[in-house]
Design a protein around this nucleic acid. Structure first.
Lengths: 342, 342
DNA sequence: CTTCGACACTTCAACGATGAAGGATCGGTT
DNA sequence: AACCGATCCTTCATCGTTGAAGTGTCGAAG
């Protein structure tokens, strides 16, 4: 193992000079800097992470707490996790993956052991048990999602209200008047998962303003569940010409069921999905969709936590930013003008 | 921050006694152990990760290197990552997430800095650049996937050969004679991704033994690509009655296309998928599928690396195990007896 | 010709844990 | 009474890095 002392000896300086060259915290002459750098390269020196964390009281690790639950669309989670990892690396941090089944104790463990400098929490509930722990430990953290009381924390999330409104506007612009909103399973709403409720609220408000009638129906995302939901919708409101789908699993079944029931998309009914573009493009017809960038979410979360850590290590009190990312509507082949009344 | 010295003072012992109570490496009297444990609890002591890593020369961290690429089915990757994380915790390890765009340098960085004790590599290519680095650094590692030269490493993977054979057997048992194998995009084969080639090989061999005629066609997994692939298959071999699909993205389009071309599943054609059960159940009809457990894969990988680390820290030379996990065939509604010849 | 400040580097004491080596205590054996 | 071994605990050096404080040198100002 190559230590800083080996580098120092090789470059003919003291080890703290090597440390200063590497951290850039003191002025070092051009000549010495060059020599040290070339010794570092020649010996293949990498600072020992443990020693560095001990001495500097910073591990340069960010912990990312991901849900075990699989009722959220998994590729999105993965995309966020990867975006967090690559963004973190750009700021000189590594990412520790922990699962939220460790709960508040997990947060305590990570914070108290100094394993990570800060945390990013995913799948936050409105009234989350982990938040008081964070505050008690004085640990820097960012939430992906919104919580009731986010004092001392930063947050970032998609603007689901805007996403819901975009759906309503698009269908209203096309002349649709009766809409069905196919949501997640009822469990998601009972958990008060913010994203589900906020999308619905945004849709509901805009739908009201635009004079749309609509139904909201939960759906578990299986074929059977979608079939049941669709049957109920068509029984309750036979004049429905627009569908908003926020459940990734329900999209495929819905399209199949519409087809087999003799309804053509988009001539007879329009379908607009709240899902990743990649997924929207896999169906036939390709789906008009409202999307937020998962990568952006991860990137912003990292920037928030890195910013907080920088301020805190200078002895400051970080601002609690709340970022809402604006969603995008991409019009594809699944939406069109409402059919003329028969 | 609570240190081991605080605990020692509180319990009226020396700090190394606390250390021994916690590690269990020396005999400590029942009475003292009790007192130390209760002090630990009362003060909320968690050992400082950096100090522990420095002194013990083990970080208790396993690095998991995941692919950035998205042409593999992402939920499977996530499932593995989560299984690795939860299994690792059960062995007292945490998991550091790194992306394979860091390449061999990433491996060097992690190994040389002592950030992680060992690595688990995913998406390994047959001739992978990271493997020589691992060997040079003397780092313990496990591969998820198989490599050409795995000396000094452990490996775990699904038995894709067996999976391919299972597909051939099932269709042969049902009386099918002309089969189409819809694979991944050509890029996957050009990369010599082991799983694609091995599944095909297993299928090919068994198909030969069972007297099946078959076509193998690549497919990018989009609707258009699937349509093109299917059209070619039906033009080349109009008598095809069985489909094996190894591309998750192609399943939905294939089912839709078969239906719109007037073919009923399973009465006219049988479809067997190589994909997760969860996905197989989302289609209508539910798909007969051959599956390997992603959770099991993660669990075994962790057990291998933890085992290697234990042996190595006792000064031993770990065995290079290669585990192949047996896949399961679950018969659902998408396969049935071959239609009688017209 | 002293003094001062700027610059460039070094010295050295942390940081918080581990674990080898070294007591202290005690019952039992010669 | 002296010695022994076992048991249980403590002392202390060590891990590799950081950064405050200190040293030495040199040019410019007083």
């Amino acid at each position: 193992m190559v230590t800083i002392a080996d580098v120092a000896r090789h470059a003919g300086v003291s080890s703290s000079t090597v440390s200063y060259v590497l951290s850039g915290k003191r002025a070092i002459s051009e000549e010495t800097r060059r020599r040290v750098r070339s010794s570092v390269r020649e010996l293949g020196y990498h600072p020992n992470a443990g020693a560095r964390a001990l001495a500097a009281r910073r591990s340069h690790i960010i912990a990312l707490m991901v849900p075990l639950r699989t009722d959220v669309y998994v590729p999105v989670m993965m995309e966020i996790a990867i975006a967090v990892t690559t963004s973190a690396r750009q700021h000189g941090y590594d990412v520790l993956l922990i699962t939220n089944d460790e709960g508040p104790d997990g947060v305590r463990r990570i914070a108290a052991s100094g394993l990570a400098d800060g945390l990013i929490l995913m799948d936050v509930e409105l009234d989350d048990e982990r938040i008081p722990v964070l505050r008690a430990q004085g640990t820097q953290a960012t939430l992906i999602g919104l919580a009731d009381d986010a004092r001392g924390l930063s947050c970032v999330d998609h603007d689901f209200v805007a996403a819901g409104a975009l759906c309503a506007d698009h269908l209203a612009d096309l002349g649709h008047r009766e809409i069905a909103f196919i949501g997640y399973g009822s469990g998601v709403y009972h958990r008060h998962a913010g994203y589900a409720e906020r999308t619905l609220a945004g849709f509901r408000d805009r739908a009201g303003q635009r004079g749309l009638r609509f139904l909201h129906r939960t759906c578990e995302g299986t074929y059977e569940s979608t079939a049941g939901t669709l049957a109920r919708v068509l029984a309750d409101r036979p004049g429905t010409t627009g569908f908003v789908v926020q459940n990734e699993g329900a999209i495929g079944p819905l399209l199949t069921l519409l087809r087999t029931s003799g309804r053509t998309v988009p001539e007879d009914v329009s379908v607009i999905a709240l899902c990743q573009d990649q997924l929207a493009e896999q169906f036939a017809p390709r789906l008009t969709a409202v999307t937020g960038s998962a990568q952006e979410l991860g990137r912003v979360a990292v920037e928030q936590i890195v910013g907080r850590l920088a301020v805190a290590s200078d002895g400051g009190r970080p601002d609690d930013d709340q970022a809402l990312l604006t969603p995008t509507l991409t019009v594809r082949e699944s939406t069109g003008p409402a059919p003329l009344l028969p």
